[in-house]
């Protein structure tokens, strides 16, 4: 049992890396690339929600910020893709810092409210700032990612690029959670008073985690823009933020694997009818509408029971099957 557990991450990594060898279905590879993009966002949200216990209702806005930033950098400024990618992450980080600093100094659910407001504002801004974003029509003609002359235009290449970045993020996040920062996050989640009394700079930790999660969302946005080649404001709504949060909530607390599995499952469900040949439209639709209920329910649970209530519940559920 123990060895299975220790080996599991390596097995998963091998299977994920081998993806393009296991299928040559271009559509499936695209979908799996989208899974990777969501996974990148969820790594950050798993740290923010699952470890530090903070709720964000605006992470889609950071994805949008990253997407438009990289689009503008490559199309309008003609900068190399990697520069736009880094700029997207930096801009999202800055946005996260500006949002987190004032709201995290206050006690209570100010962060949740601030992120909700930011999310609404950003989705308006993406539509209204037409000269920059292309307004409702969106931003098109975004080039594929390219690094040092190599252009990632084949689905397999895009798949590998996205999942390589996900792999790096998961690795760094795993290190982070295994050492002092992870303990500090779990500590402030467990008891803020206890954390303060143990010398933990609780505000500092929350701000750092929030900025980190915003950065990952921004990077995911930059990848998304260049994978799809087109950015539409309808993607970066509060509804998408709720979906992200639901993935983190359903995935459970104190773990990266749980939210990553949830992100994979919930992303695949959206493409159910296309992925399973022969499944009837209606069946797919029923499953998909059920999925919406799950999102709604998990968010209601967060609001009603407070993040700790849900996480406690998930923890208990998670430990049932343990040896």
């Amino acid at each position: 049992m123990r060895t299975v557990r220790a080996l599991a991450p390596y097995l998963v990594a091998i299977v994920v890396a081998a993806g393009p060898f296991l299928t040559d279905d271009r559509f499936l590879l695209k979908v799996l690339t989208f899974v990777g993009l969501n996974a990148l966002v969820i790594v950050g949200l798993a740290l923010l929600f699952g470890f530090a216990g903070q709720v964000s209702l605006g992470h889609a806005a950071f994805v949008g910020l990253g997407a438009y930033a990289s689009a503008v950098c490559s199309v309008r400024f003609g900068w190399p893709w990697i520069v736009g990618f880094i700029a997207a992450g930096s801009l999202a980080a800055l946005g996260g810092l500006i949002l987190a600093l004032p709201s995290l100094r206050l006690k209570g659910h100010y962060l949740a409210m601030a992120t909700l407001g930011f999310g609404e504002l950003a989705s308006l801004a993406f539509v209204e700032a037409e000269p920059v974003t292309g307004g409702v029509d969106g931003f098109s003609g975004i080039p594929f990612p390219s690094i040092g002359g190599f252009e990632f235009r084949e689905p397999a290449a895009l798949y590998w690029l996205v999942w390589a970045i996900v792999g790096i993020a998961v690795l760094l996040a795993t290190n982070l959670t295994a050492l002092r920062p992870g303990r500090a996050m779990r500590a402030l989640h467990g008891s803020e008073l206890g954390a303060l009394a143990s010398g933990v700079d609780t505000t500092g930790i929350k701000v750092r985690v929030f900025v980190l999660s915003a950065t990952l969302a921004g990077l995911a946005g930059a990848l998304y823009a260049s994978v799809v080649g087109f950015v539409s404001p309808s993607v970066f709504t509060v509804g998408s933020s709720v979906t992200f949060l639901a993935m983190a909530v359903i995935g459970g607390t104190g773990s990266l694997a749980g939210p990553l599995v949830a992100a994979t499952a919930l992303t695949l469900v959206q493409y159910l009818d296309a992925l399973i040949p022969g499944i009837s439209r209606d069946t797919a639709r029923i499953v998909q509408s059920f999925q919406e209920d799950v999102y709604g329910m998990s968010i209601v649970l967060v609001v009603l029971l407070a993040p700790r209530g849900v996480s406690g519940l998930l923890k208990r559920l998670g430990s049932v099957g343990r040896p």
Binding site: L172, L176, R180, G182
Partner: peptide, 9 residues
């Protein structure tokens, strides 16, 4: 705080 140092071990 060591976020950077921890992430890179």
């Amino acid at each position: 705080a060591g976020f950077f140092a921890a992430a890179l071990r």
